Computed example of a mutant assay.
Amino acid sequence: MMHPDLMKRFDLTGRSALVTGGAQGIGLEIARTLRMAGASLTLADLDLDTARKAAAGVGPDVDAFHCDVADPQSVRDLAASIGPCPDILVNNAGVPGKTRDTSDDDWRFVISVNLDGVFNCCSTIGTAMAERGSGNIVNIGSICGSIVAKLQSDPAYNASKAGVHMLTKSYACKWAKSGVRVNAVAPGYVATKMTNDSNDNISTWAELTPIGRLGRTEEIANAVQFLASDASSYVTGTVLPVDGGYTIW
Protein backbone atom coordinates (compact mmCIF):
# COMPACT_ATOMS: atom_id res chain seq x y z
CA MET A 1 0.00 0.00 0.00
CA MET A 2 1.24 3.48 -0.87
CA HIS A 3 2.37 5.49 2.15
CA PRO A 4 -0.21 8.16 3.11
CA ASP A 5 2.39 10.94 3.03
CA LEU A 6 3.26 10.03 -0.55
CA MET A 7 -0.39 9.94 -1.56
CA LYS A 8 -0.87 13.45 -0.16
CA ARG A 9 1.64 14.80 -2.68
CA PHE A 10 -0.70 13.86 -5.50
CA ASP A 11 -3.94 14.70 -3.68
CA LEU A 12 -5.94 17.71 -4.93
CA THR A 13 -8.60 17.68 -2.23
CA GLY A 14 -9.64 21.20 -1.27
CA ARG A 15 -8.44 22.72 -4.55
CA SER A 16 -10.54 24.05 -7.40
CA ALA A 17 -9.77 23.38 -11.06
CA LEU A 18 -10.94 24.92 -14.34
CA VAL A 19 -10.50 22.94 -17.56
CA THR A 20 -11.11 24.69 -20.88
CA GLY A 21 -12.26 22.53 -23.78
CA GLY A 22 -13.38 20.07 -21.13
CA ALA A 23 -16.46 18.68 -22.85
CA GLN A 24 -14.81 15.83 -24.72
CA GLY A 25 -11.60 14.01 -25.64
CA ILE A 26 -8.44 14.73 -23.70
CA GLY A 27 -10.04 17.66 -21.88
CA LEU A 28 -12.82 15.50 -20.49
CA GLU A 29 -10.37 12.83 -19.37
CA ILE A 30 -8.28 15.50 -17.63
CA ALA A 31 -11.43 16.70 -15.88
CA ARG A 32 -12.27 13.16 -14.69
CA THR A 33 -8.74 12.64 -13.41
CA LEU A 34 -8.58 15.92 -11.49
CA ARG A 35 -11.96 15.15 -9.96
CA MET A 36 -10.80 11.67 -8.92
CA ALA A 37 -7.78 13.34 -7.30
CA GLY A 38 -10.18 15.36 -5.16
CA ALA A 39 -10.40 18.73 -6.91
CA SER A 40 -13.67 20.61 -7.22
CA LEU A 41 -14.21 21.11 -10.92
CA THR A 42 -15.48 23.55 -13.53
CA LEU A 43 -15.64 22.80 -17.25
CA ALA A 44 -15.59 25.54 -19.87
CA ASP A 45 -16.33 24.89 -23.51
CA LEU A 46 -17.62 26.58 -26.63
CA ASP A 47 -20.40 23.97 -26.75
CA LEU A 48 -22.33 24.56 -23.52
CA ASP A 49 -24.84 21.74 -24.01
CA THR A 50 -22.09 19.17 -24.48
CA ALA A 51 -20.18 20.64 -21.54
CA ARG A 52 -23.22 20.31 -19.29
CA LYS A 53 -23.70 16.67 -20.29
CA ALA A 54 -20.00 16.00 -19.71
CA ALA A 55 -20.10 17.72 -16.33
CA ALA A 56 -23.08 15.62 -15.24
CA GLY A 57 -21.17 12.50 -16.23
CA VAL A 58 -18.12 13.50 -14.19
CA GLY A 59 -20.06 14.29 -11.04
CA PRO A 60 -23.19 15.96 -9.67
CA ASP A 61 -21.22 18.87 -8.27
CA VAL A 62 -19.31 19.75 -11.46
CA ASP A 63 -20.13 23.10 -13.06
CA ALA A 64 -20.15 23.92 -16.77
CA PHE A 65 -19.90 27.30 -18.49
CA HIS A 66 -19.74 28.59 -22.03
CA CYS A 67 -16.47 30.18 -23.08
CA ASP A 68 -14.89 31.15 -26.38
CA VAL A 69 -11.23 31.27 -25.38
CA ALA A 70 -10.38 33.20 -28.55
CA ASP A 71 -12.48 36.11 -27.28
CA PRO A 72 -10.85 37.99 -24.37
CA GLN A 73 -14.21 39.31 -23.17
CA SER A 74 -15.66 35.79 -23.10
CA VAL A 75 -12.76 34.70 -20.89
CA ARG A 76 -13.30 37.68 -18.58
CA ASP A 77 -17.01 36.82 -18.40
CA LEU A 78 -16.11 33.24 -17.49
CA ALA A 79 -13.79 34.40 -14.73
CA ALA A 80 -16.54 36.60 -13.32
CA SER A 81 -19.10 33.78 -13.53
CA ILE A 82 -17.07 31.16 -11.68
CA GLY A 83 -16.37 33.47 -8.75
CA PRO A 84 -13.14 32.94 -6.81
CA CYS A 85 -10.08 32.37 -8.96
CA PRO A 86 -9.42 28.62 -9.37
CA ASP A 87 -6.36 27.01 -7.85
CA ILE A 88 -5.66 25.07 -11.05
CA LEU A 89 -6.16 26.17 -14.66
CA VAL A 90 -5.80 23.67 -17.50
CA ASN A 91 -5.68 25.40 -20.88
CA ASN A 92 -6.82 22.50 -23.05
CA ALA A 93 -9.18 24.15 -25.57
CA GLY A 94 -7.85 23.83 -29.11
CA VAL A 95 -8.58 23.01 -32.72
CA PRO A 96 -6.76 20.67 -35.14
CA GLY A 97 -4.69 21.76 -38.08
CA LYS A 98 -5.75 21.67 -41.70
CA THR A 99 -4.79 18.99 -44.18
CA ARG A 100 -5.17 21.36 -47.12
CA ASP A 101 -3.17 24.47 -47.92
CA THR A 102 -3.45 27.04 -45.15
CA SER A 103 -5.56 30.04 -46.10
CA ASP A 104 -5.53 33.39 -44.35
CA ASP A 105 -8.73 32.41 -42.55
CA ASP A 106 -7.30 29.01 -41.55
CA TRP A 107 -4.24 30.65 -40.05
CA ARG A 108 -6.20 33.24 -38.09
CA PHE A 109 -8.70 30.69 -36.76
CA VAL A 110 -6.12 28.17 -35.53
CA ILE A 111 -3.87 30.81 -33.98
CA SER A 112 -6.82 32.60 -32.35
CA VAL A 113 -8.00 29.45 -30.55
CA ASN A 114 -4.80 27.55 -29.86
CA LEU A 115 -2.45 30.42 -29.04
CA ASP A 116 -4.55 33.51 -28.34
CA GLY A 117 -6.83 31.32 -26.22
CA VAL A 118 -4.01 30.32 -23.90
CA PHE A 119 -2.82 33.93 -23.71
CA ASN A 120 -6.34 35.18 -22.93
CA CYS A 121 -6.85 32.66 -20.12
CA CYS A 122 -3.41 33.25 -18.64
CA SER A 123 -3.82 37.02 -18.93
CA THR A 124 -7.10 36.99 -17.02
CA ILE A 125 -6.97 34.00 -14.68
CA GLY A 126 -3.22 33.65 -14.33
CA THR A 127 -2.89 37.32 -13.43
CA ALA A 128 -5.51 36.85 -10.72
CA MET A 129 -3.56 33.86 -9.40
CA ALA A 130 -0.38 35.93 -9.26
CA GLU A 131 -2.17 38.73 -7.42
CA ARG A 132 -3.50 36.17 -4.91
CA GLY A 133 -0.05 34.62 -4.52
CA SER A 134 -0.83 31.05 -5.52
CA GLY A 135 -1.91 29.01 -8.52
CA ASN A 136 -1.01 26.30 -10.96
CA ILE A 137 -1.40 26.43 -14.74
CA VAL A 138 -1.01 23.45 -17.08
CA ASN A 139 -1.14 24.21 -20.80
CA ILE A 140 -1.74 21.54 -23.42
CA GLY A 141 0.86 21.89 -26.12
CA SER A 142 1.90 19.23 -28.64
CA ILE A 143 4.93 17.43 -29.97
CA CYS A 144 4.15 19.50 -33.07
CA GLY A 145 5.30 22.52 -31.09
CA SER A 146 8.87 21.24 -31.30
CA ILE A 147 8.99 19.04 -34.40
CA VAL A 148 7.19 18.78 -37.75
CA ALA A 149 5.54 15.38 -37.39
CA LYS A 150 5.25 13.23 -40.46
CA LEU A 151 1.92 13.65 -42.27
CA GLN A 152 1.12 16.74 -40.17
CA SER A 153 3.03 19.70 -41.57
CA ASP A 154 0.30 22.33 -41.05
CA PRO A 155 2.14 25.61 -40.33
CA ALA A 156 -0.69 27.21 -38.35
CA TYR A 157 -1.12 24.31 -35.92
CA ASN A 158 2.61 23.79 -35.46
CA ALA A 159 3.26 27.50 -34.93
CA SER A 160 0.37 27.77 -32.47
CA LYS A 161 1.69 24.93 -30.32
CA ALA A 162 5.25 26.25 -30.44
CA GLY A 163 3.79 29.52 -29.20
CA VAL A 164 2.01 27.71 -26.37
CA HIS A 165 5.33 26.22 -25.27
CA MET A 166 7.00 29.63 -25.24
CA LEU A 167 4.05 31.25 -23.42
CA THR A 168 4.44 28.52 -20.81
CA LYS A 169 8.09 29.34 -20.25
CA SER A 170 7.52 33.09 -20.32
CA TYR A 171 4.72 33.05 -17.75
CA ALA A 172 6.67 30.60 -15.59
CA CYS A 173 9.47 33.16 -15.35
CA LYS A 174 7.08 36.07 -14.92
CA TRP A 175 5.18 34.51 -12.01
CA ALA A 176 7.75 32.22 -10.39
CA LYS A 177 8.12 34.44 -7.32
CA SER A 178 4.36 35.09 -7.16
CA GLY A 179 3.52 31.54 -6.10
CA VAL A 180 2.28 30.48 -9.55
CA ARG A 181 3.73 27.53 -11.44
CA VAL A 182 3.21 27.19 -15.20
CA ASN A 183 3.96 24.01 -17.12
CA ALA A 184 2.82 22.27 -20.28
CA VAL A 185 2.16 18.75 -21.47
CA ALA A 186 3.05 17.97 -25.09
CA PRO A 187 1.01 14.96 -26.19
CA GLY A 188 2.03 12.74 -29.03
CA TYR A 189 -0.62 10.93 -31.05
CA VAL A 190 -3.51 9.94 -28.81
CA ALA A 191 -6.53 7.78 -29.64
CA THR A 192 -9.39 10.31 -29.71
CA LYS A 193 -12.23 11.04 -32.11
CA MET A 194 -10.08 13.78 -33.64
CA THR A 195 -7.29 11.30 -34.32
CA ASN A 196 -9.67 8.60 -35.53
CA ASP A 197 -11.01 11.03 -38.11
CA SER A 198 -7.52 10.78 -39.66
CA ASN A 199 -7.57 6.99 -39.58
CA ASP A 200 -5.56 6.68 -42.80
CA ASN A 201 -2.55 7.94 -40.83
CA ILE A 202 -3.01 6.00 -37.59
CA SER A 203 -0.90 2.99 -38.62
CA THR A 204 1.93 5.29 -39.72
CA TRP A 205 1.84 7.26 -36.46
CA ALA A 206 1.87 4.04 -34.42
CA GLU A 207 4.80 2.71 -36.44
CA LEU A 208 6.74 5.94 -35.90
CA THR A 209 6.19 5.76 -32.12
CA PRO A 210 8.86 3.68 -30.33
CA ILE A 211 6.28 2.20 -27.95
CA GLY A 212 4.38 1.09 -31.05
CA ARG A 213 0.90 2.42 -30.36
CA LEU A 214 -1.12 5.60 -29.92
CA GLY A 215 -1.48 7.02 -26.44
CA ARG A 216 -4.58 6.82 -24.28
CA THR A 217 -6.35 9.91 -22.99
CA GLU A 218 -5.77 8.87 -19.37
CA GLU A 219 -2.02 8.83 -20.01
CA ILE A 220 -2.14 12.53 -20.87
CA ALA A 221 -4.45 13.24 -17.94
CA ASN A 222 -2.09 11.50 -15.52
CA ALA A 223 0.73 13.84 -16.57
CA VAL A 224 -1.51 16.86 -16.08
CA GLN A 225 -2.52 15.65 -12.62
CA PHE A 226 1.15 15.26 -11.67
CA LEU A 227 1.96 18.81 -12.78
CA ALA A 228 -1.12 20.14 -10.99
CA SER A 229 -0.14 18.50 -7.69
CA ASP A 230 2.45 19.12 -5.00
CA ALA A 231 4.39 16.14 -6.33
CA SER A 232 5.78 18.58 -8.92
CA SER A 233 6.24 21.51 -6.54
CA TYR A 234 9.74 22.33 -7.86
CA VAL A 235 8.73 22.08 -11.53
CA THR A 236 7.89 25.19 -13.53
CA GLY A 237 8.48 26.25 -17.12
CA THR A 238 8.67 22.63 -18.25
CA VAL A 239 7.17 21.20 -21.43
CA LEU A 240 6.66 17.51 -20.70
CA PRO A 241 6.40 15.25 -23.77
CA VAL A 242 3.94 12.40 -23.31
CA ASP A 243 4.41 10.79 -26.69
CA GLY A 244 5.47 7.16 -26.39
CA GLY A 245 8.97 8.24 -27.38
CA TYR A 246 7.95 9.79 -30.72
CA THR A 247 10.31 12.77 -30.36
CA ILE A 248 13.42 10.77 -29.36
CA TRP A 249 14.17 9.35 -32.80
Results as ranks from 00 to 15, higher is better:
39 A>W: 04
40 S>R: 11
73 Q>S: 08
55 A>I: 12
5 D>H: 08
40 S>K: 09
241 P>Q: 01
41 L>Y: 06
49 D>P: 01
102 T>L: 13
212 G>R: 01
105 D>N: 10
103 S>P: 05
96 P>R: 10
115 L>M: 06
238 T>V: 11
210 P>H: 10
49 D>R: 10
24 Q>A: 15
61 D>Y: 02
136 N>G: 03
214 L>E: 14
49 D>K: 05
113 V>I: 10
89 L>N: 07
80 A>Y: 00
56 A>W: 01
24 Q>F: 10
58 V>M: 02
60 P>Y: 00
28 L>E: 15
212 G>N: 07
33 T>E: 15
245 G>R: 00
45 D>F: 06
87 D>W: 09
156 A>W: 07
131 E>M: 05
170 S>A: 10
27 G>D: 15
52 R>K: 13
234 Y>P: 01
172 A>G: 03
158 N>M: 12
218 E>I: 13
170 S>I: 09
184 A>V: 07
8 K>M: 11
215 G>S: 11
239 V>M: 04
119 F>V: 00
156 A>L: 11
217 T>P: 13
111 I>G: 04
146 S>V: 00
3 H>V: 05
51 A>S: 10
56 A>D: 14
91 N>V: 14
213 R>A: 14
32 R>F: 12
193 K>N: 12
61 D>A: 08
163 G>N: 02
127 T>R: 14
59 G>D: 05
92 N>S: 09
158 N>Y: 09
211 I>W: 01
79 A>F: 09
72 P>H: 08
240 L>M: 07
2 M>E: 08
87 D>S: 09
9 R>A: 05
102 T>S: 13
1 M>P: 13
52 R>M: 09
162 A>P: 05
34 L>M: 12
159 A>C: 09
211 I>F: 10
162 A>F: 03
33 T>H: 13
66 H>V: 07
61 D>N: 06
231 A>Y: 03
192 T>L: 04
142 S>H: 05
46 L>S: 14
76 R>P: 01
247 T>I: 08
107 W>V: 12
22 G>V: 14
104 D>T: 15
219 E>P: 01
203 S>P: 10
161 K>L: 02
241 P>V: 06
184 A>W: 03
32 R>W: 14
75 V>A: 03
69 V>G: 02
182 V>G: 05
240 L>K: 02
213 R>T: 15
29 E>D: 15
197 D>R: 15
210 P>Y: 08
78 L>R: 00
205 W>F: 05
34 L>C: 07
96 P>Y: 15
192 T>G: 11
161 K>T: 03
135 G>C: 04
224 V>E: 01
130 A>Y: 00
45 D>T: 07
123 S>A: 08
159 A>W: 03
